[in-house]
Amino acid sequence: MTNKEIFQEMKAFFKVNSLEDVAEKLGYSRNSARNWRAGQLSQKAIAKFEKAKADKKKDDEAFDELFFGGGIGGILMRYDKDDNTQHNYTLSPELVDFILLYIDYGNKALLDKFTQDLKQIQTLIK
């Protein structure tokens, strides 16, 4: 795959229009994009991009189905593959807003914190 193809894939993945925006999404300065265009795209930057793709895939697979209702919250349907049962969870409007913000902006650190909080809550209610 050529650098130009990688750049196109990166922009599409992050839903941005410029390589400078890609650089920022990967934690680099906007000036890094100039070096990348000059043929200095490092394996480290490619590895960070591959990790971001893998993390997104993992996040996407965490939810089987998610239904949102306009302003009234939503329902999360999970299927337990071990005992083939369905579990429905009602989501508050605030949680739906949070999830939609994550979907729009992809804040991985925010999602990690939220996931950690959910695991603590899950432990308390068992």
Rank of each mutant, 00 (worst) to 15 (best):
E5I: 03
E5Q: 09
Q8D: 13
E9T: 10
F14S: 02
K15Y: 01
K15A: 11
V16K: 07
N17E: 15
N17L: 09
L19M: 07
A23P: 02
A23Q: 02
E24D: 07
G27F: 11
G27H: 12
S29R: 05
N31I: 01
A33P: 09
A33W: 12
A33F: 11
A33V: 15
R34V: 12
N35K: 11
G39K: 02
L41Y: 05
Q43K: 04
K44W: 05
K51A: 09
A52C: 01
K53L: 07
D60I: 04
D60E: 13
A62F: 09
F63A: 08
F63I: 10
F63Y: 09
E65A: 04
L66E: 04
G70L: 08
I75L: 11
M77P: 00
R78I: 07
K81G: 01
Q86K: 09
Y89C: 03
Y89S: 07
T90S: 14
T90V: 14
P93C: 10
E94V: 13
F98E: 03
L101M: 12
Y102D: 12
Y105V: 07
L111N: 14
D112Q: 13
K113M: 10
F114P: 00
F114G: 00
T115G: 03
L118E: 12
K119G: 03
Q120F: 13
I121Q: 15
K126P: 00
